Simulated scan of single mutants.
Amino acid sequence: MNVALKHYPPESRRIGANGLEFCVETRGNPSGEPVVFIMGLGAQMTLWPESLLNAYAEAGYWVVRFDNRDIGLSTHLKAHLQDHPLKAMLNSRLGRPVAAPYTLHDMAADVGGLMDALEIGRAHLVGVSMGGMITQVLAGDYPQRVRSATLVMTSTNSPRLPMPKLGLVWRLSGIGVKGHDEDAVVARSLDFWRAIQSPDYPTAPHTVRERLISDYRRAYHPAGILRQTRAILASGSLSSITRRIQAPTAIIHGAADPLIRPVAAEQLQYLIPHAQARLIPGMGHDLPEPLVGTIAETSLGVMGLASR
Rank of each mutant, 00 (worst) to 15 (best):
V302K: 12
G284C: 14
A123L: 05
A123T: 02
H285Y: 08
Q276K: 14
L73S: 08
P159D: 06
G254D: 04
L279G: 07
G254Y: 04
G16D: 11
G40A: 11
A306E: 00
E58W: 04
A184P: 00
M89W: 06
G32I: 08
A79W: 02
P164N: 15
R209N: 07
S299A: 14
V36Y: 02
E289M: 10
S155Y: 05
D257G: 11
N18L: 13
G72P: 03
M303R: 08
G301V: 02
M153K: 04
P9S: 14
P9Y: 08
P159C: 12
G304T: 09
L268N: 05
Q228K: 09
V64E: 02
T156D: 10
V36P: 00
L190K: 14
V64S: 05
G236K: 11
T203I: 09
T46P: 00
L114F: 07
G174R: 12
C23V: 03
G304C: 11
R243V: 07
D116H: 11
A100T: 02
V208D: 08
A99M: 04
M283S: 11
Q228V: 06
P9M: 12
G60D: 07
S155N: 07
P9E: 06
T294V: 15
P143D: 05
V292Y: 06
L300D: 00
G112A: 14
P10Q: 08
I280W: 02
A256M: 04
S51C: 01
A57Y: 01
A255H: 04
V177A: 15
Y142L: 08
L279H: 11
H84Y: 05
S173Q: 13
A234H: 12
T154Q: 06
M115W: 04
A255P: 00
V126D: 01
P273C: 14
S299H: 06
S173L: 15
R218T: 12
L212C: 12
P49H: 09
S189W: 05
T229R: 15
I272F: 10
E182F: 14
G19Y: 12
A117R: 06
D141H: 03
I120H: 07
E33G: 05
W62S: 02
T46I: 05
A223M: 10
S214D: 09
D215A: 15
C23K: 07
L53I: 01
G42S: 11
K87P: 00
H80G: 10
G121P: 00
L118P: 00
T46L: 10
L125C: 06
R27Q: 03
R261W: 01
M303K: 08
R14T: 11
R13F: 06
R27I: 01
S148K: 03
P101F: 12
M107Y: 03
S92D: 00
P143C: 11
G301P: 02
D70A: 13
R171D: 08
T207I: 14
S92M: 09
A275L: 09
M107S: 04
G179Q: 13
Y8F: 14
I213T: 13
A255W: 00
I252W: 01
G113E: 04
G40L: 06
G254F: 04
